[in-house]
Amino acid sequence: LYHVLGLDKNATSDDIKKSYRKLALKYHPDKNPDNPEAADKFKEINNAHAILTDATKRNIYD
């Protein structure tokens, strides 16, 4: 999941948040209406963010 956000395992919560915002804006379906690959990437980014920002889920993942 870290690679989805372009981060390593030592990433801080701020790093995760910044990377998520940058990538979410880039791949958001509203910005890429005719690109199904961007929509899939956006879903991956959201999933990675949801797990890595939840301390319990992140510990389980790590």
Rank of each mutant, 00 (worst) to 15 (best):
H49S: 07
D62N: 03
I51M: 10
L7M: 05
Y27K: 05
H49N: 12
R58E: 14
T12Y: 00
A38S: 11
K57P: 02
D8K: 03
N35D: 03
I45F: 01
L5C: 00
L1A: 11
A48D: 10
Y2R: 00
N35F: 06
Y61R: 13
K22T: 14
S19E: 11
K31R: 15
D34A: 10
K57M: 04
L1V: 06
L52V: 03
Y20N: 07
D34R: 08
K26R: 09
G6C: 03
S13V: 10
T53S: 11
N35E: 08
K31Y: 09
H28F: 02
L7F: 01
E37M: 08
K18V: 11
L52C: 00
L25R: 12
L1N: 15
L7W: 00
D62A: 09
K43C: 15
I51R: 06
N32Q: 13
L7V: 11
P33C: 06
Y27W: 15
K26M: 13
H3L: 05
Y2T: 06
K43E: 06
A48G: 04
K43R: 08
I51Y: 06
D54H: 02
N35C: 04
E37H: 13
P33L: 03
N35M: 04
Y27Q: 08
A39Y: 14
N32V: 05
N32P: 01
A55Q: 13
G6F: 00
K43A: 15
P33I: 03
F42P: 05
Y20P: 11
T12G: 03
S19W: 00
K17N: 08
D40T: 14
Y20W: 15
D14Q: 05
N59Y: 03
V4T: 09
K17Q: 12
A55P: 12
L5F: 00
E44D: 10
P29D: 11
D54P: 03
A11C: 09
A55K: 13
I16H: 01
D8P: 14
D34I: 02
K31I: 12
L1C: 07
I51C: 10
T12V: 02
N59Q: 13
K26Y: 02
K9I: 11
K41D: 03
D15E: 12
N46M: 11
D8E: 08
K43M: 15
L7N: 04
E37I: 05
K31V: 10
I16K: 04
I60T: 14
E44W: 01
K41Y: 08
K43D: 13
D15H: 01
V4R: 01
I45K: 08
F42A: 07
N46G: 11
K41N: 04
A11T: 02
K26W: 03
F42E: 09
D14W: 06
A38G: 09
Y2V: 00
D34P: 02
Y27A: 06
K57L: 05
A55W: 05
A38H: 10
A55C: 05
F42C: 08
Y61C: 12
D34E: 12
E37D: 08
K18H: 05
T56F: 03
P29E: 11
E44T: 03
E44L: 03
H49G: 12
D14K: 09
S13L: 12
K41R: 11
Y61G: 15
K22D: 15
A24V: 14
V4A: 13
K31H: 09
S19L: 02
A38M: 10
Y61N: 09
P33G: 14
K17L: 09
A55I: 05
T56I: 04
K18R: 10
L23A: 04
Y2W: 03
R58N: 11
N46I: 09
L23F: 03
N10D: 06
Y20V: 07
A48M: 00
K41V: 07
N35I: 08
E44K: 05
L5H: 13
Y2C: 01
H28N: 02
D62Y: 00
K17Y: 03
I60A: 15
K22E: 15
D54T: 03
I45R: 02
T12E: 02
Y61E: 15
S19F: 00
E37F: 13
K9Q: 08
L25P: 09
T12A: 00
K41M: 06
D54Y: 00
H49W: 10
I60N: 15
H49E: 05
K41C: 02
I60K: 15
K17G: 08
L25G: 07
E44C: 03
K9C: 08
A11W: 00
D34V: 02
E44Q: 07
L52G: 02
Y20K: 07
K9M: 04
I51H: 07
A38K: 06
Y2F: 05
A50M: 11
A38P: 02
D30C: 08
S19P: 03
T12D: 03
L1K: 07
D54K: 12
Y27L: 06
A39Q: 08
L52S: 03
D14V: 06
L52N: 00
T53C: 10
L1G: 03
A11R: 00
P33Q: 12
A39S: 09
L23E: 12
K43W: 07
H28A: 12
Y2Q: 06
D30H: 00
D30N: 13
D40F: 13
A50P: 01
I16F: 12
A11V: 01
Y2L: 01
G6P: 00
P29I: 02
K17A: 14
A48Y: 01
L23V: 03
I60W: 13
K17H: 14
K9T: 07
L7S: 06
S13A: 11
N10R: 03
K26A: 12
T53I: 07
Y20Q: 13
F42W: 12
K17W: 09
K31W: 02
D62S: 04
V4S: 08
P33R: 14
V4Q: 02
I51G: 08
E37C: 09
L23G: 07
K17S: 10
G6M: 01
A55T: 12
L25T: 13
T53D: 11
T53K: 13
L7C: 10
T56C: 12
H3A: 10
Y2N: 13
A38N: 07
P29C: 04
D15L: 05
R58S: 11
D30F: 00
T12W: 00
A50D: 15
K22N: 09
K57V: 01
Y61I: 10
N10P: 00
L5N: 14
N35R: 07
I51Q: 13
